[in-house]
């Protein structure tokens, strides 16, 4: 039953893909050679191939070129897509794990104490809705290093969902389970590690998954701003080159990498899930 549903869905997905690509291909007619252009077409700039949205076939060809040689470095304006993704992932993961290192223990303390929960709440509520990029000037001024500032922006945007979810998950652990820890004379550290942590783990992982999603959204914008390396810079650079084929290709790469990151966290989340 499930497999047949999955099969049907896969079949439908492929049809949608072919249909979408087909419409796109037809809507972007192949560029005529200069001799075939009318006077009017020349006037409105149709001769400029780069000004057109490229058809999917061109993007597939470009993807093949880029992916068959992803790791090369010919200076600041010509690096392989693999290297650019590597830079972005490095920034995202280092900012993200620094945030986790702070958000999870602090969230734990906040969740364990109703007083701390109430006391920290107004600060979290004010800081959380700030767009992470709004921190960029301040970060650049204080840190004075654009790479570190990009990492800081990732740090600041991933900290809130993890902090809030950890506190929420810890505060919501069933009293029965805490009582089991108490009747077994577990000290606070053991109670935290072997009862509260596994009990709150699904909620904490939800927060971590939201955070990694946001971090990946933000890195593209941050790299467009600070420049130099990374997939965000790559998109911007190709736009400046008016190479729309590469722009569309890198947009797709951003989507695929984001999906893989999310899938990895979904897998971890499933492994700590339990049923009451």
């Amino acid at each position: 039953m499930f497999t047949s549903l999955n099969l049907k869905a896969l079949f439908l997905s492929i049809i949608i893909l072919i249909f979408g690509l087909g419409v796109w291909e037809l809507a972007t007619p192949a560029v005529k050679s200069a001799g075939e252009l009318t006077e009017y077409e020349k006037l409105v700039g149709a001769a400029d191939q780069k000004a057109r949205v490229p058809p999917p076939s061109a993007i597939i060809v470009r993807a093949w070129e880029e992916l068959s040689n992803p790791i090369y470095d010919n200076g600041p304006n010509d690096k392989g897509i693999g290297i650019q993704i590597g830079y972005s992932l490095f920034r995202v993961l280092s900012g993200y794990f620094m945030a986790a290192l702070i958000a999870i223990p602090v969230g734990f303390l906040i969740g364990m104490s109703p007083l701390a929960y109430k006391a920290f709440d107004p600060f979290i509520q004010v800081l959380r809705p700030i767009s992470p990029l709004a921190w960029m000037p301040l970060a650049l001024f204080i840190i004075k290093d654009s790479q570190a500032s990009a990492i800081f922006v990732i740090f600041i945007c991933s900290i809130w969902p993890m902090l809030i979810n950890t506190a929420f998950g810890v505060a919501g652990v069933r009293k029965d389970w805490v009582n089991v820890a108490r009747t077994h004379e577990l000290d606070s550290l053991r109670t935290a590690l072997i009862v509260i942590l596994p009990a709150a783990a699904p909620t904490i992982l939800t927060g971590m998954r939201i955070s990694i999603g946001i971090a990946w959204l933000v890195i593209v914008a941050a790299e467009m701003l600070v420049g130099g390396t990374g997939i965000g810079y790559y998109v911007w650079n190709e736009w400046n080159n008016l190479d729309l084929t590469s722009v569309i290709f890198s947009i797709l790469v951003i989507g695929v990498v984001g999906m893989l990151l999310d899938a990895a966290f979904a897998w971890v989340q499933r492994s700590v899930q339990y049923q009451e």
Partner: peptide, 19 residues
């Protein structure tokens, strides 16, 4: 005073750790 392993408890709702 306080809970202790000298006293074992079986709760009505079992109170097993579900994970």
């Amino acid at each position: 005073s306080g809970p202790s392993l000298d006293r074992g408890v079986v709760f009505q709702n079992y109170s097993l750790l579900p994970w």
